[in-house]
């Protein structure tokens, strides 16, 4: 038995050296790129980046590995992305929560820790009511809210987009709502179907339940009515000046080489232009929305200020 020992050690060493040699330096991208999605597989964000991954892979010419780095309202993933080496092999899939969680003190990661690459999609928010409420329209809801200030319950992830959207409506319509913490769309749907909360923020993916009479769409936060849901009025036409969508995009850690960012941006532009991707997004109640890195940078800056003001108005501002 003993005489087999040495050859095996030698064999192991050879394998080790060979694999090490193959991992040498070459032009970007020469190894798999990790796409950090800070929420669980199957969530809204994951549902958008899963079909996006293969498209990006096709145009970037490198394997895209989606890593769901979950926990603490998406801040674990944000932190992991921030601390990753800025070499272009770690890309972070983010949305507007990056501003709101920063200002409400949930997270210590700011959009300034990253270089923008591109935006991918925009999902308009829909104000949704429980089937157990008696309202059939915004006017009835408004009347009831004025009659019972602070009594109507809204399920929301506190300090995140699902909280800020109803808060904008609250401010614009001059009403007062009561927030109850329900993190994630699935628990909110459980609660609203059981009538344990009255209102929540959702999106067009829930249209099936509305058609089945299990939910009521009150209004959508777009500029114009959408062809997928022509009967849902916009908040604007109801006299509430709120347009709100969750914009998802790609960023990389600050200090990533410019040529890597440029390659990612080009690949992203081509990937978002794929008709297959648009088709997948339509199923998610989402519009494809591409902005290049310059436009995304401006968007982030504007959005950041907006979120800062909102957090201040809500009394949630921590920095």
């Amino acid at each position: 038995m003993r005489r087999f020992g040495l050859p095996l050690v030698a064999l192991a060493l050879v394998v080790v050296v060979l694999v090490a040699a193959s991992a040498g330096l070459a032009a970007y991208p020469d190894r798999p790129v990790k796409l950090i999605v800070p929420w669980a597989a199957g969530g809204d964000t994951d549902a958008i980046f899963r079909p996006f991954g293969p498209q990006l892979q096709k145009h970037l010419g490198a394997t895209i590995v989606i890593a769901n780095v979950t926990g603490a309202s998406g801040t674990v993933g944000a932190r992991e992305a921030k601390n990753s080496p800025p070499d272009g092999y770690t890309v972070y899939a983010t949305h507007d929560y990056i501003h709101s969680t920063y200002y409400t003190g949930v997270s210590d990661v700011s959009y300034k820790d990253f270089e923008p690459v591109c935006t991918v999609s925009a999902t308009p928010s829909v104000l949704t009511a429980s089937p157990k409420t008696k309202w059939t329209s915004w006017q009835e809801l408004l009347g009831d809210a004025k009659a019972r200030p602070g009594q109507i319950t809204v399920g929301a992830t506190l300090g995140s987009t699902s909280h800020f959207f109803p808060a904008l409506i609250e401010k614009s319509a001059g009403i007062k709502l009561k927030y109850v913490s329900y993190e994630g769309l699935a628990p909110r749907m459980n609660a609203i179907l059981g009538g344990h909360i009255d209102l929540t923020d959702s999106n067009l993916t829930q249209k099936g339940k509305v058609d089945a009479g299990q939910l009521k769409f009150i209004a959508i936060a777009t500029e114009k009515r959408l062809p997928q849901a022509p009967s849902v009025p916009t908040l604007k036409e109801l006299g509430v000046d709120v347009v709100y969508a969750v914009t998802r995009g790609l960023v990389v850690p600050k200090g990533t080489p410019a040529d890597a960012v440029a390659k990612l941006e080009t690949a992203c532009a081509k990937a978002t232009a794929e008709p297959k991707f648009a088709e997948d997004m339509a199923k998610q109640g989402t519009a494809v929305r591409f902005l290049d890195r310059k436009a995304y940078a401006e968007f982030l800056k504007r959005n950041d200020q907006l979120n800062h003001d909102l957090a201040r108005d809500l009394g949630l501002l921590k920095r």
């Binding site: 979950t70 926990g71 603490a72 309202s73 801040t75 674990v76 932190r79 969680t101 409400t104 003190g105 949930v106 997270s107 506190l158 300090g159 913490s181 993190e183």
Partner: peptide, 24 residues
């Protein structure tokens, strides 16, 4: 231990990043 589930206030983390995300 870790961020509280409602507003993600760090609890009992002794100021460390490691404990802040809690235990999966």
């Amino acid at each position: 231990i870790g961020s509280d589930p409602i507003m993600a206030v760090p609890r009992l983390t002794l100021g460390t990043e490691f404990l802040r995300s809690g235990f999966q």
